[in-house]
Every structure is written in structure tokens, then in C-alpha cells.
Design a protein around this nucleic acid. Structure first.
Lengths: 200, 200
DNA sequence: GTCTATAATTCGATAGAC
DNA sequence: GTCTATCGAATTATAGAC
């Protein structure tokens, strides 16, 4: 994840600039996508010189990699009442998409750029699949169940937060939860595609 | 849709070049996205001069608009046995995504570019929503039901055909149909979010 | 640490010869 | 109808002054 070497104990003077660049980069990448988000526009929004971005992050790709470092914070099974599994998960995912722009950034760039797609695969493999292992019954099924849940959640996020389609963006949040919760719950708990509950 | 004026009856000599440009454009836009697909690369792949692209389509945006002219061909309710509504629709959507690259192109550009997003909204409004009106019961609900179906189908297509995630790309087609069919059917026929069947 | 200046490409679009 | 030549603008990245 981070630097394996020594981490300086006290904050350096440049940390503020570094944070400003990252914040600006997240917004520019989210709004414009990878290609149209220029190093110059990031620097302008951060109020510094374009060459500083190169100094801190080496290249445009390095800047992107530093900008999208996401933790899904998926709750543990013990923290959720079993009869509200789908509802709790959908609520949590909507929170993630609404609390900042990092997931919009990741999706937008992942669709367009090789580095972005690889980053999405990594988040899926290291966070979503392990979570599916904790929630599901058969660990061998975890990648498939995680993928099904991701397909529904990503599709809704695409329409609602990225493309901002009218019907998707205007739908009350509670309605989104009500419609998606049974789907997500079935993908995680159903013994097979035809099953509805969690009976064996 | 097309030119409201006179349409020449006999094929002109330039139609072959025009078709070659369009075919090349669809592939370049699909693979590279809007920004990285340059007019020059399209021309190179079509085996003609870059200036020809401008001559035929006026601008890069004009080329894109001509390249993504998609017809979803959604079947009529009478053509589908009611007990297999979800299955038939999912099968049809998978066919659309697999038969050529135009939908991959549309999604890829729609996420990045203003013109692409507008094009997606138009397809949704003029093809998907009317289809939902024909299949559903309450026409006022059609936009919402169409959006729910689109969210699930687009999400799966995103993982399977655009990002090519392992679990999504390798899942047998019949399994995808089996898992998604009940979801799609519920989004179209359920009286409300909590409903499972189509009872009132 | 920050900025100025600029190198080296690359792009969309145009003008005009044939 | 096709191509050559090129313009003007924008980009990433670098070199070096302060």
C-alpha cells in the first residue's frame, strides 16, 4: 500500500500542498475523466504551479494512482441483523458513493484508462471478494457473488452518480434501497440462481 | 434521425469509403474511448487520409454521432411468453452487447464525454422507456422501471464486456441469464419494491 | 519549495493541388 | 474524391533561476 521504508514522524511543510493537489486531482478526474483532466487544470484548482504536480507525483499516472486510494469499509457480518442484510449493504454502498467523489473518479477512469481498470480490479479482488467470503456460505462462490452484487450496485451508481439520468438521480434514496435490497440479498444468500431465500 | 431532404436513390462511389470510416471509428472509439481515439488513428485503420474523415463527417463529434447509431430492437410483449419475460429480455440484451461493439462504445464514451452521455440518455428515453410502457402496467412508472432494468443490465455489461473482470467475463452465459432474469422480471412486473410477483 | 520558460509532441481542422 | 502540407492550439514533461 504505502512506503515500506521509514515514515517521517513530523508533518513536513509540503504536506499541505500535497493534500491540496490530491483534493483537486480527485475532483478534476471525477468531473473530466482521465484524458481531459490535465495536470494544468489540477494545478490551477489547487492554486499552485503545474510543475509542482510533477515534482510531487512524478507523472500524471502517478498522480492518479495517489488520488484513488479507496477503502470500501464493508461492515462485518456480526454488525448487521441477518434479516436486513441487503438493506444494510445497499445503504452502505450509497453512503460510499455520496460521501465523496473517489468512486465516481474510479469508475470514470476505469472505463477509459488501463490504469483505472486495473485499480478497479484490485479493489474488487482485495475488498469485495473477501467480504463476500465472510457473508456467504461457500467461499468458492465468493467471486461470483461479489461480482453479481457489484454489477447491480455499479449499474445503479453509473446511472445515478455518473451519468445522472433523470429517473435514477431523482429517485428517493429510500426507494433505491427498497428496490435493490432484495436483489443484493438474493445474490449473496440464495443457494443457486433459482433460489429466493437461504434454504439449502 | 436521418436527413429529411432528398435521399439519392443509387449508391454513390463514396459509400464504401464512408462505411470503412464508420467501421474503423466504431472500433477505435470502443477500444480507446473518445479522447484517445484520434481522427488520425481512425483514418489509418480505414486506410485513408485523415482529411477524408473531416470531409465526410465535418468534425470528430460528427463522426462519433454517426458511429453510434444504435437500435435496441426490444421485442414486443406479444413475442414473449409471459412466464419467461425476464429470461427473454436478458438473453436479448446479452445478444446486443455481444453482436458488435457499438454498445461498448456508447458506454465508454458516455462516461467520459458530454456528447456520449447525451446519446445514452436519448437511447434510454426513446427506446427503453417506451418498451417499459408496453411491458409494464402503469405507464407513469415506466421511466423508473426502465431505469431499474438498465441499472442491472448496464452493470453486468460494464463488468463483463467493458472491464472484463475475471468472474464476470468467465461466467457461462446461461448462468448470467439465470441470475439476472428474476431481477429484471421483478423490476418490470412487481407492483412495488417489496413485491415479488405480479399480484395487485 | 516555488515559479518561469520552453522543449518535444500531438491533436483537430483547413487550404489547396491534382 | 483523394491526398500533401501545414496551421494554431494544447498537452506532458524538463531545465534551471530565485
Amino acid at each position: 500500500m504505502s512506503d515500506p521504508h521509514h515514515v517521517p514522524a513530523r508533518p513536513r511543510r509540503s504536506d499541505a500542498t500535497r493534500a491540496a493537489i490530491l483534493a483537486a486531482a480527485r475532483e478534476r478526474f471525477a468531473v473530466d475523466g482521465y484524458e481531459r483532466a490535465t495536470v494544468r487544470s489540477v494545478a490551477a484548482q489547487a492554486g499552485i504551479d503545474p510543475s509542482m504536480v510533477m515534482r510531487y507525483f512524478g507523472s500524471k499516472e502517478g498522480l492518479f494512482a495517489a488520488a484513488v486510494d479507496v477503502d470500501l469499509h464493508i461492515p462485518e457480518p456480526g454488525e448487521i441483523p441477518r434479516e436486513r442484510l441487503g438493506e444494510a449493504l445497499v445503504q452502505h454502498f450509497l453512503d460510499l458513493w455520496e460521501q465523496d467523489t473517489v468512486l465516481v473518479t474510479l469508475l470514470r477512469v476505469g472505463v477509459t484508462h488501463r490504469a483505472g481498470a486495473e485499480r478497479m480490479r484490485e479493489v474488487f479482488r482485495r475488498q469485495l471478494v473477501p467480504a463476500a467470503e465472510r457473508f456467504g456460505r461457500d467461499p468458492a462462490d465468493a467471486p461470483r457473488r461479489a461480482m453479481l452484487v457489484a454489477s447491480q450496485v455499479l449499474g445503479m451508481a453509473l446511472l445515478r452518480y455518473v451519468l445522472r439520468f433523470g429517473p435514477a438521480a431523482e429517485m428517493p434514496r429510500e426507494d433505491v434501497v427498497a428496490w435493490l435490497a432484495p436483489t443484493v440479498e438474493r445474490y449473496i444468500t440464495a443457494p443457486d440462481a433459482r433460489g429466493v431465500g437461504d434454504a439449502p
